[in-house]
């Protein structure tokens, strides 16, 4: 029986939305294979996350809940994920920081081929092929995995979040597998969280992203625009490197990949690495002083102007449009 296992991601006892993208993949893959899918919820005190997972239409929700899994460490998670995953044709998660860290290690443990950060599942005669962006999104590779268990991570922006199915899956506990020597040589010291009231960058309907041109006025200029549009803030690598924006906001080939309905690139020149993270957005607006900036090649609406004058004016007009 060819079944699919979703490795859920949770934080503070709640399911992270990344999980829902992996579930969308799992529904497609299970259907193609004529099997079913399960969801593995792993961590400590994850009963709440498991309860949420039950609504997603899985055949089973498996729960590995143990005090030794309190802090996420791949060294402690991978043995259990791999042990459970052995019984499945496909083990899938989302290519978030957690998924990228964990799934590749799981692939190492299983000796499984790994299809990383895929953007589409292609089914050919009952076999699975994966389409994945390479070369900063300038090419797609069509590939397949030849090992008995295939490990896959999906690009969150390419797989819509699964909606609840209406059913309620059965829950079964699974045993935690003792980790190897690696786990005795690593510990988590701290997690410095960046708290934000704004929507998650990878889930927002509107993203307002800024570049180095904003300098120390990054937040002063962009916050009002993001507030008006209920947008998430994003940034170019240059803005993050220079310390104008926290690195968590970086959009690009090696940062977050986003594809919102509306994306504002403010003072971003449009390096290849940045375009890789946002060019699938539905509508792209660019504001830049330099009319030859590469960002204008992907922008639907370009405005060649000084952002320090234009953005406050834009905020004013958007507010007026809303009120009107």
């Amino acid at each position: 029986m060819a079944n699919v296992l979703v490795v859920a991601e949770s934080a503070e006892g709640k399911l992270r939305k990344t999980t829902h993208s992996a579930v969308t993949f799992a529904r497609q893959a299970a259907q193609a294979l004529g099997g079913a899918f399960s969801i593995l919820v792993i961590g400590h005190n994850v009963a709440g996350a498991a309860e949420e997972a039950r609504a997603l239409g899985a055949d089973k929700v498996l729960v590995a809940d143990d005090a030794s899994l309190k802090d996420y460490l791949a060294e402690r998670y991978a043995p259990t994920v791999a042990e459970v995953g052995k019984g499945y044709a496909v083990v899938v998660g989302t290519a978030s920081a957690y998924g990228k860290d964990l799934l590749a290690r799981v692939a190492g443990r299983l000796g499984s081929g790994y299809a990383a950060d895929i953007s589409e599942l292609l089914v050919e005669g009952g076999t699975l092929k994966y389409k994945r962006p390479m070369f900063a999104g300038n090419a797609f590779g069509i590939m397949s995995v030849s090992t008995p268990v295939q490990v896959v991570s999906v690009r969150q922006s390419a797989f819509a979040a699964a909606e609840p199915s209406g059913g309620s899956s059965d829950v079964a506990p699974v045993a935690v597998v003792a980790p190897g020597a690696a786990a005795s040589r690593i510990e988590m010291v701290s997690f410095d969280q960046v708290k934000s009231e704004r929507p998650e960058l990878t889930e927002a309907k509107v993203v307002v992203a800024g570049g180095r041109a904003l300098k120390e006025r990054f937040n002063e200029i962009l916050d009002p625009l993001a507030d008006t549009l209920t947008a998430a803030l994003g940034a170019s690598r240059a803005a993050c490197d220079a310390g104008y924006a926290p690195s968590d906001l970086q959009v690009g080939q090696t940062g977050k990949v986003v594809a919102p309905p509306l994306y504002f690139a403010i003072g971003i020149s449009g390096a290849i690495q940045h375009l890789a993270g946002m060019k699938n957005s539905k509508v792209i607006v660019a504001v830049n002083k330099d009319g030859d900036a590469p960002i204008f090649q992907v922008a639907d609406y370009g405005l060649v102007a000084d952002l320090f004058q234009v953005v406050p004016e834009l905020v004013k007009q958007l507010k007026a449009a809303k009120a009107g």
């Binding site: 000796g111 499984s112 390479m134 300038n138 090419a139 590779g141 590939m143 992907v298 609406y301």
Partner: peptide, 18 residues
């Protein structure tokens, strides 16, 4: 463990306006 069967260019974005 993995095989690449082929490659595709990404769809071109149609030119926008200023």
């Amino acid at each position: 463990r993995v095989t690449y069967h082929g490659f595709q260019a990404p769809p071109a974005r149609k030119a926008g306006i200023k």
